[in-house]
Write a protein that binds this DNA or RNA. Sequence first.
DNA 1: CCGGATCCGAATCGATACTG
DNA 2: CAGTATCGATTCGGATCCGG
Lengths: 224, 224
Amino acid sequence: MAARSYGQYCGVTTAVELVTERWALLIIRDLLVGPRRYTDLKQGLPKIPTNILSARLKELQEGGVIRRVALARCGLVYELTDYGRELEPIVLALGRWGFRSMGEPKDDDVVTADSLTMALRTAFRPESASAPLDFQIRVGPVELRGQVRDRELTVVQIAPPAPPVGGSLPSGEAELRFATGPGIRHLIAGTLTPAEAVTQGVVTIEKGNLKLLGRFAELFRIEP
Amino acid sequence: MAARSYGQYCGVTTAVELVTERWALLIIRDLLVGPRRYTDLKQGLPKIPTNILSARLKELQEGGVIRRVALARCGLVYELTDYGRELEPIVLALGRWGFRSMGEPKDDDVVTADSLTMALRTAFRPESASAPLDFQIRVGPVELRGQVRDRELTVVQIAPPAPPVGGSLPSGEAELRFATGPGIRHLIAGTLTPAEAVTQGVVTIEKGNLKLLGRFAELFRIEP
DNA sequence: CCGGATCCGAATCGATACTG
DNA sequence: CAGTATCGATTCGGATCCGG
């Protein structure tokens, strides 16, 4: 199992050995949203083979990046250690960087709740978040509730059938609710105005108006 | 060749597909120091198979991360594109993060000029660099000249036999010159004082004094 | 259903040899 | 110098199976 060594004594190399093996950073991405059980991770990473998931979880534990915790009569969860959580700015920066290389999605590409949550976090610009905003975004079956307060973003995942586990839904209704798809990236990139996004069907406003969508587009942006 | 897809439409996933395949980030690390020819990369990454180096260089070009440039009658070099250079803060952050997990070096671990250059960059703290410093550090056969001016660090590699290619050596002599080994990480981590490092043989001062080594230790630090 | 372990074919990687 | 070619060693992917 021991990762084949790169044979260098160097911090970058050590980090690379710890977290860049196949699937490892995506596991970390999902754990940055919150603790997850084995099955959650498997669902959030539909294409990961179970033996690889097992192996990575084991390696990440040995590396001190994640921890396996038994919840009181609620099963097991994996969560990031403090050390692992320090990867957050790195993963967010990678997401921002990679965003600019996203082409069109392939046919079987999926958007998961965790990946969309992290995508919102990567695109969030605190410096533009002087005013609060409550919104709800839906991409396929994934629905998220976002709340911006005091230049901070909170995202809660809305489970399709049951109410959310753990965290409580922010009280009150979202001012803005919209459905969208892959084309949302043009709004985030600034290559489509909110008005264009709506007229071209990239975004469908279910509640609220263009002005609120404009606020959203100011808050979440990754420029080239 | 085609990297097996992770099947997710997400910026983090895109970045992971572009730069986390085996050896890719180490190639990028070395190119962050400067343009390198194929043979330079091969020497700086002694354990990389040549077919993998070829494959990665090809993939990174296709991803727009690096570029292949023909130098006027001087052969070919690979260099980062502007897009690729934006990975610099990410690689530096990864190096800082990984530093804290570096144990003792394995027997066949090497320290290369490029890895040591980047290590200095990862550990450099501009906020502590109010005063200038000229130093020269040697680890095994690798010798580097560092210059701190206006809270900025410049590192030049000193080739063992011939004078450095391209950049010119900073004029004047270094105030501080020392030889060291893997144990230097204890000085960087702050778990060894400069005095202890010298008395324990971790650092051998060849020119300058303990006070100057103390300045070095303030400038280059990664705390737990 | 949760949390994996096992097995096996396919793809990738590593080491070496070789070439324009 | 700048890579290709080859081939055995590893790892990955997909499916199945198992204990609680």
